[in-house]
Every structure is written in structure tokens, then in C-alpha cells.
Design a protein around this nucleic acid. Structure first.
Length: 133
RNA sequence: GGAGUGGACCGGGUGGCCGCCGGCCGAGUCGCGGCCGGUGCGCUUGCGCACCGGCGGCGAAACUCGGCGGGAGGAAAGUCCGGGCACCUUCGGACACGGUGGUGGGUAACGCCCACCGGCCGCAAGGCCAGGGAAAGUGCAACAGAAAGUAAACCGCCUCGCUCGGCUCGCCGGGCAAGGCAAGGGUGAAACGGUGAGGUAAGAGCUCACCAGCAGGCCGGGUGACCGGUCUGGCUAGGCAAACCCCACCGGGUGCAAGGCCAAGCAGGAAGCCACGGCCGCGCCGGAGACCAACGUCUCCGGCGGCGAGCCUACGGAACGUCCGAGCCGUCGCAAGACUUCCGGGUGGGCCGCUCGAGGGGCCGAGCAAUCGACCCCCUAGAGAAAUGGCCGCCACCCGCCGUGGCGCGCAAGCGCGCCACGGCGGGCACAGAACCCGGCUUACAAGUCCACUCCGAUC
RNA sequence: UGGGGAAUGGUGUAACGGUAGCACGACUGGCUCUGGACCAGUUAGUCUAGGUUCAAAUCCUAGUUCCCCAG
């Protein structure tokens, strides 16, 4: 294992992992649509609301409440969650996801990424089964 | 060397890979039009239209790619003050309400800052103070205490009278009643100056001296708060204004989600005192006309205001705590509407505002200082479900443990303790994230740097 | 982001600047064969830190927490 490979341990960071604005939920109506679907799933780390996306790729929305901490702590959570989404984007189904941290403990990037991928996969099955567009 | 006081600064550095936001430049995509060539059709056959290919040009809303350079703080925080800016109503005034509170200065302004004055604390360097008025008015002071404020008297002290007892016959002691007193005791957070002398039946600023404190006058210093001196007065005027209040000064309201432009979309409805005004109906009076033999009837016009729970609009509009005045806009014509409030409907997209500003740095000058002025240089975040990052190294810095070496001390001669240097391992590295922009205040903060000063101890 | 309000025993609430009450609860005892009800008693509080005042839950300043409104 080279030093270079060890540096990029969380996931292989090749190109194609950018996160431009089109991969994010940016409107009040987008969030309301996902919440109105009322399909959510959670583990101890995250809770995710999901709905089939209008686009052929997944989109991310974040909701980090003041209960989690001050502005610095909440910014840290959002950055980690964006990073997790960015790195794992190729492994995610084409859903609109609203991700809410559970607030217990202080998870790191690897935990967030693993939880995000696993929950999104299970969420995809639920969304297919529900038939909601 | 130790203890301390005041102030200024800093808020890790560096690298690899992968990302985010906005700016500029280029290319592609796209759009517009031009030229050349080809094919087809029409034909007024040196023309027009359509399609295909090629080459320049112009455009930039969006998207993709590439390049260049930029991207959190000293508090960005709390939102406690003050401004800029924007809209509301053009101006002035009164009242109400709120704020500030020694003096002078600084400033766009401030509740901020500087200097000085006064009071309190500290041996000192220094620190703290909402620090105007209680001899304008109203009010408050639980409990205790006689009394909580132009007075009053529980114990007490004193005089006179009556009375009882004793007796060395001059007084002594007790009780009751009337009166005088405020020194002593006692209560309280606070009780109408302190010491001494005179004075008195006992006492008392009752009188006097000194001291403290007060008021007024004068002199001197200071821009001023105030300070120093002196004379006179009356002997006491208590506390609380972060109680009402008085005085002086300041303050219009709402806030960039202000506000402006564009696009898209929808559906309107209800209510609004009194008086004055207009209309209508009824009634009365007058006039004119028509019909009638006449009584009278009908029509029109004018007036009255008697009647009407009839209709219309309101003299209206213009951010506002209330009110007044001036000015402005509109105006009543047939009606509706224009205004306000409430209910309902639509949208919640884009652009601007949006970062060059009381801006930062250097140097010189004025000033005790805060600060101000001149010159030179610099441009430094502008997001919008909200960027300024993620992972991994290296080097600083701090802490702990281990090892090696040196020095000092102790020693039961195995060693132990302390300091310093080097190496290894592990851990830590604060408070905290721009949201229109500034000036302050307040609060949070790891480690570290520098300057000035005070006190104590030792040595020279 | 901007604006407004509140905080008193475990809970809900009172208190002109002068001893912090009340109700429910909890605990102990009594009554009862036992429980409930009832009776008696106990427990425990002014969000925090400064300041004004003789004296502060109350007045002032700063902080903490919670709630509401606009969009």
C-alpha cells in the first residue's frame, strides 16, 4: 500500500465525484415534496427521507437543527454529510434524499458514508414498493 | 528573585489528493445574420424559396470543459446602544412617552472614548462610582422602640405638695399627684452635632471656646466641575429620586425579509358613528299653464322645512401615541370608484440593492490624550436549504511516561530526589462561522509574545 | 435573520421594597381487617452573577434557558 493510496482511504477518489449545485435540493418545494412522501428510514447515525428523483441522479438535502449544536458544529456536520454524498454518489440510487443527523455521538466521515449508502439502498426498495412518484 | 498593577499584540506554519462559492479570460454547445459551392422546385429565367456542406463575423441568458487569480473573526457571537442607507407625510408646534445625567474635549453619532474634578478602596503602581436636585412638592421606612421628623418621654434625673416609716430632731428612705428636663440607660440600619468650661433645682447651643458640618458674602486660581483663603450668620438643616417627581439635554416610525424592476398567476366579498350636504316620497305656501259652468283636478317651476328606522356620498386623501396650525393633492358630476379594516384568492421565481467604506497600511505634523490633518501606497468574501471544505502527512508549541547524558543535594553506598539537554511513545492545540454596512459596549477564549510601572527581599 | 415575552418547592400558580404563601403531589404517623377518602405533621423553591437600598422574588445592569410572532 503506497502512501498515496493510504491518504485516500475512505473511498477511491477518482474524478467524477464533484458536487455541483444540481446534485442538491435547493428549493422549499423540493423539501416539502420529499417530506410529503412520508417515507423515512433511520439507524443510530442518520435519518433519511427519500422519494424518487425528478432527475436521473440522486440529489441531497440537509436538515441539521440547532439541537445538534452551535453554528460551527452544524457546519461541520453538513460538510461531512456533503463529503459522504460526494464520494458515494456513484453507489446511490436516483432518489431525492433529505438527510438528518440523529445527534447522538460525533460520527466521522466513514460512519456517515457507510450509513448513507446502506440506508439509501433500503430506502430505494421502500420507494419502489410504495408506488409514489 | 518573589508578589502585583496597567496596556499593546497574536489567535499556528507547510505539503499531497479530491471538492465548494463567486469573478475574469478562452473554447465548445446554442442563436442571429453574411459569403462561397452543390441539389431540388417555382419562374416575371443576371431572380426567389427550401435543404446539404464549407468559411469568417456578432451575441451572450443557460449548460459543459480548460486556464488565471480570490474566499470568515477578534470577537464574524449576544443584539445592549449609536449612525449610514431605504421607505413611510411636506413643514412647524404643544402634550404624552422613552433615554441620558460631575466638568471640559473627541466624534457622523452614542449610553462610547480621552483628560480633569469629587467620593470610596488599596502600603503603592492603580482600581471602582447611574456622580444633577431631598433647605420645590408628594410619598416610603417592616420588626423593635417613648418617638422614624417642624415632634415626643418607657426607665431615669430634678422641684414643690400630700402621705407613710425611721430617727442621733436635722434629715434620710418609700408611695401618690402636679410640673420641669432630655445629660445617662435601653430599641433600631438610622434617633435633631463632638470635646471642654460656665450655668442650673436638675438640665439643655441656654451661653462661650475649639473642632466637624451647613448657608451666604468677599478675595485669589481655573474655560469649567471645583480648589485655596477670609468674614458673617444661625447653632443642625437625617436617609431613599436604579420611589413618584423637578431640572437640563437628546429622541418621528419601521427596518435590506427596507426598497426598486421584471416574469408568472388569480376572484372577489363584507363592514365603516354623529352632525352638515344632495336626491327621492309625503305635506304646506306662492306663481304659471291645461281641463272645467263652477267646486275643483292635473302638470311644471320656485320656496319652506313640517314628516320619513327611505336612498347616496360623505370634506375626502396622506407612515404615526394624541392633538393643533400651515401648506399640498383630489373634488362631485348621473352612478360606481378612489380611503380604512377584516375575510378570501394568486405567487413565493429572477435581477438590482450588495459591497470603495466615517476603509486599511506607512510616514510626517498638531494635541497631555481620545482624535484630527497633509502626503504616498493598497483593494481585501459576497452565499441564498446558504460556499470559504474533506482525508492523510511533516514541522512548531504544551503536557505525561520511558531511556541516555551532565550538574546539584541527600545517602543505610544498592540508590533516591530536583534541574537542564537529547531521543522515543502517547495525548492535547481554545472561543467560535459573515447574511446591508460601519462606530462602540458586553460576553466567551487554549497556548504564547512585548512594553511601562509599583511593593518586598538579597547582593554589588 | 428580525421583533416580542417569560422564568417562584416535583407540577400549576399568588405575593404595596419589609416573615415567600396556596392547591395538587411525595414522605411519616393516625383512623381501617386492608386500600381509598379523611385527620395531623414533615419535605423542598424566588434561573445565575453583580449593583442601588438599612432591607430585593420585586428596582437597575449583564448572562443562561425556554416560549411566541413575522417571513
Amino acid at each position: 500500500m503506497t502512501t498515496q493510496a493510504r491518504a485516500n482511504r475512505p473511498i477511491d477518489s477518482m474524478t467524477g465525484h464533484g458536487l455541483p449545485a444540481r446534485y442538491r435540493l435547493r428549493r422549499q418545494t423540493d423539501f416539502e415534496r420529499v417530506y410529503a412522501g412520508r417515507i423515512s428510514i433511520g439507524d443510530g447515525v442518520l435519518r433519511i427521507y427519500g422519494l424518487k428523483s425528478e432527475c436521473p441522479h440522486p440529489r441531497l438535502g440537509l436538515s441539521v437543527s440547532r439541537r445538534v449544536g452551535g453554528a460551527v458544529v452544524r457546519n461541520r456536520y453538513k460538510r461531512l454529510l456533503r463529503e459522504a454524498f460526494r464520494l458515494a454518489r456513484q453507489n446511490l440510487p436516483a432518489l431525492d434524499l433529505v438527510v438528518i443527523p440523529a445527534g447522538r455521538g460525533r460520527p466521522d466521515l466513514a460512519q456517515f458514508q457507510e450509513s448513507l449508502v446502506r440506508l439509501a439502498a433500503r430506502l430505494a426498495e421502500r420507494v419502489e414498493g410504495s408506488g409514489i412518484e
